[in-house]
Structure formats: structure tokens, C-alpha cells
Design a protein around this nucleic acid. Sequence first.
DNA 1: ATGAAAGCGCTAACAG
DNA 2: CTGTTAGCGCTTTCAT
Lengths: 319, 319
Amino acid sequence: MTVSRVLRNRGDVSQATRERVLAASKRLGYVPNKIAGALASQRVNLVAVIIPSMSNMVFPEVMTGISEVLEESPLQPVVGITHYRPEREERVLYEMLSWRPSGVIIAGLEHSDASRAMLENAGIPIVEIMDTDGTPVDSVVGISHRRAGKEMANAIAAAGYKRIAFLGTKMPLDHRARKRFEGFTGALAKAGIEMADHEFYSGGSALLKGREMTETVLKRTPDIDFLYYSNDMIAAGGLLYCLDNGIAVPGQVGLAGFNGIELLDGMNPKLATMDACRREIGRKAAEIIARCTEAGLDHADERIELTPRLSIGDTLQRG
Amino acid sequence: MTVSRVLRNRGDVSQATRERVLAASKRLGYVPNKIAGALASQRVNLVAVIIPSMSNMVFPEVMTGISEVLEESPLQPVVGITHYRPEREERVLYEMLSWRPSGVIIAGLEHSDASRAMLENAGIPIVEIMDTDGTPVDSVVGISHRRAGKEMANAIAAAGYKRIAFLGTKMPLDHRARKRFEGFTGALAKAGIEMADHEFYSGGSALLKGREMTETVLKRTPDIDFLYYSNDMIAAGGLLYCLDNGIAVPGQVGLAGFNGIELLDGMNPKLATMDACRREIGRKAAEIIARCTEAGLDHADERIELTPRLSIGDTLQRG
DNA sequence: ATGAAAGCGCTAACAG
DNA sequence: CTGTTAGCGCTTTCAT
């Protein structure tokens, strides 16, 4: 009836009636039932955001970007965490789709067959984020991690480093870390450099693991002159290890991480890294969904590849 | 009809029929419409989680605790961010309540009148988290920040420090930081110590701000012998500043932070801090909601005060 | 063990 | 401008 019109300020309602309704609804502490509303209108102002984790600094920042743009729209993000496990992704996706959201933003391009099928048949805009190395269901916004690894390798080789080690996460399911690794080794090979050592870890405090792995590698292969880490946090641990142990940086060993986390701004020397454009990815993805929703489109087919900026810092240049 | 019974495996359905239905639903890629289901059953397996921010390390970890326990239940968390702004909290709360969740977990005890009214009239279990210094709407799980500040002050005084400064966030709306500050100054006063200096900041990279504020304070009040920071991140920045500038820690100045973030595990020397029990708070809060939902209760009236553990580390003891 | 019927609280379309 | 009437896709209850 009229009440519904007032609460959504739609249609023509006289000023007097409108005020009367508003007053009453406030007095009664009335909160509309969106469930019924959504069922009747076949519209749900929710966007499903599916990400692997919340514990490292990368996804919270993607979320920040998403929130920023969604806050200026009627849309609301709803997040689900997969812990990098395909079967959890499947379940989370199923749960979320059963609420008929206006769109989904999902990390990564690799999904189980079932997940992919759900995404394809959802009939809503899908944006796969973070990574552009692959074929998206609908839209994609991210960076090429393969290229990121390659460019870092080239920068390191160009700086004259020869005995290079890679330290990273042992996550067969972290496809982005894997692609960086592949791009990195590939480019080194092309430059005629073979990786001198590598070390992987899983779980635990990243900063601490960074220290430990750095010690392990440096003891095992003492002539290492560069350490490339799969993320900034372990790189920061490695840097602290070097500082504590009188290892000259970048004189004796050079260091580089990945992500461009804010944390590094306060470190001295400043770590070399590559910005993963996390916030921007979140913004762009949200914009696509917002635009589709407004236009009533069920897909966008956009492809946005951002360019990670290499930041040399103080740890990627020969003494 | 029968289909509905199968999909929720309720009631008696013959094995044959059940399998037929399952097969068909898989083939058609059928995803049930929870909106309709929720409307009909008046049950929604969603828990509203309302927190101020996602960017510092504290709330993601609370979320981890919540997820851990909710994952073993049919409940799903839905998070809303308030940016420490009461008017945003009001809006987010309104939006979430209009989905009729099974419960709400909300940070802090101070809310606008409207928010409080909504919480009181929601008819679902409410758990206010992080802070126990105040009167909850229903249940509360957290720590006493006033006491945390007090205990840190006592530890510092007991270690013999006399010229103490406080460095923290300038957030009139961060009630927990404020309460720690109050507890801290109160206890110092009782020990006959007046705060020697203080400095507040807002925005920007915490690690970097920690450096800057530390420099400012140390230059302004050179005889400072202890720096208490309102969070670990700025404390870490302060520590790095001291290390870089040849200021002996804890010989010349002692340092302490707050939160017990994992980041500190990899630092050397190890910062003194106080664990805010973030993950445990998340777990306990989620357990209350889960228990109520299972029992069909609309409130719990529980009060759980956790005890933050003081970690002396290497920076809170005279040389 | 299965089907039929009656809503859940709203919105949409149409009358007045 | 305001009221009325059908559903939205499920669950629930009651028959069969």
C-alpha cells in the first residue's frame, strides 16, 4: 500500500501522508523486511565477494576498494572466505547465490567445474579479480602475475645480481604466487641465470617465517646475492634478519618482495617491491557491478589489466 | 512439495524419490532461493557482524575467530563496516536488521540512541564485543580496556620508568583507545607519575606515523624514558626509529604497544605488548549466537570478560 | 510416503 | 494521489 511507496520514496505521495507514515514508522521502530521485499521485487542489493583469506594484508585492502565504491550505491558487499580451498569456494558460492545477489566478485580465475557452472548460470554479472592470466567467466580485473614475476626477474638481472634465490609460500592452491614464480624463473632462464636456491613455507607468522627461511637459505647457499620473496611480509622478515646479523643490504644481498603493502613505508632501508594494485582492483570490480546493476545488465565482459609499479626502494641496486 | 523435503532432508521420503530429485536438481543446476525459503520459514541463517574497520590487523582477526566457529554451524557471517562513524553504524545496522539475521555481533558498547533502540527491539541475540567497560544491550564479550591501560601503567612504573609519554590515535570515536588512555593516566597518577608528553595522530601508514611521532616526542622531551603506544603497529614504527637512530632500547627508552599482533613475533628486540584476545573474542561471541540459535533463544545475557596477557618482551625492563 | 493449499511481508500493476 | 489485488518461491500444515 501507500506505506511501501513512502519508504522507498517512489510514486507520487502527498507530503502530508508521507510525513505521517514516516512518523509512525519511526515511532513503532519499524524495520522493513527485505526478505519479503526482495522476493516480491526480484531484486537484491547485495553483491557477493568471495576471497581466499582475510589474514594477510592483501584482501582487506581489496575490500576497502570495493566498499568505497559500493558505499555510493545502494549495493552492499557480503563477503565469504574460502581459505584457498576449492571445495569451500564451491560451498560459499552456492550459499551466496542462493540469496540471488546482484553480482559476484570472486578472487582468481581457477575454479572447480561446479563453481564455474554456477557462475556461468547465475545470470548476474561476475567479476573475477586479482589475476588476468586465464579465461574469465565474464569480466576480469587484475594484474598479470606471470608478467609481474618476469619484470622483477628482469630488474634483478639488470642490476647485475647473479646468485638469486626465491622464498615463498608453499601453496599449491595459491595460483597467483605460483604464476609469479613461473614468470620469475622463466625470465631468469631467458637471461641465462639459473635459480641458485629456493625455500617454501606454509602457515605461521609471515615475518618470523621470513627470518627463518632467510637464515636457512643464506646458510645453505652462502654466495646468494639476491632474495626474491613471494610477499612483502616475509621479505620484511628477511630484511630484519639481515639487519640483525650484519649482512649488508643491498651490498651483500639484495631483497625484493611483492604487494606494495603500506607496512614497508616505515621500514628503513625501504624494500623493493611491486605494487599489486589491490585497492584499485577492488574499486574497478565494484564499479563494473554497480554499472551493470544500474543498467539492468547481466554481464559486462570487461577486461581490465592493471600495471603493477615496480618500486626499487633501497634494496634492489648494487651497493 | 516433496522436492523441498528432499533438499532439506526432512520428513519421510522414499530413497528412490530422494535420489530422483537430487539427480534432477543437479542436472538442472538448481540453486534454491533462500529468499523465499527465509520468508516462508521465518528463519535466516545469517549473523550480522558490525565492525569499525578492516584495515588494521585487529578486526580481521576477530573475524577469523567468528568464522572458525560459525563454519561448524549452519550460520554464516555477514559483515558491515562503520569506519568508526555512528551514523554509518546506524545505517549498516538498519540494513542488516532488515534481513532478519539470527543474531548480531557488534563492536563496542557505545551506540547512538537509534542504534541502541534497534538492537533492543530486534528480538534476536546481540553480542557486543571488544570492550566490557559499560552496559551491554544483551551479551558482551571482551576485555576491560581501562584495566589494560592501568596494568600497563603499573608494569611500567614497577620497572622504574619515570618520564613516560603516550603516543596514540587521535580518534574521539575510538572509545577503546580512549579508555586505555584513561586507565593509563589514572594509574600513573596514582603512582605519583605525571605523563611527561603525549602525541596523537590520525590517518596514514601506522608504521610510518610511529616513526614520526617518536621523533617528535623524543626531540621535544629528550629526557623521556618510556613510550607507550596505543597500538603495536605505531609501536613497531617507534622501535625501528630508535634502532635506526642509535637510541638504546630498553636502555635509554622502553617501549610498549597494545594488541599482541603476530607481526611482533618476528621483530628483534621483541616489543612489550598486551594481547587483546581478538581471536578468542570472536570465537566466544560466535558461540553465544550459535547456542542461542540452536536453542531458539532470543537473548543470552552473558558477560565474558577475558584477561589480556601482558607480554614484557625485550623492551619493558631497564637495561 | 506424497500431494494440495495456505500463507510469509512485501512490490507491481491496476483501479478508483 | 491512494487503495486493491495478485503473486514472488518457498515452508508448513493438513489431507490423502
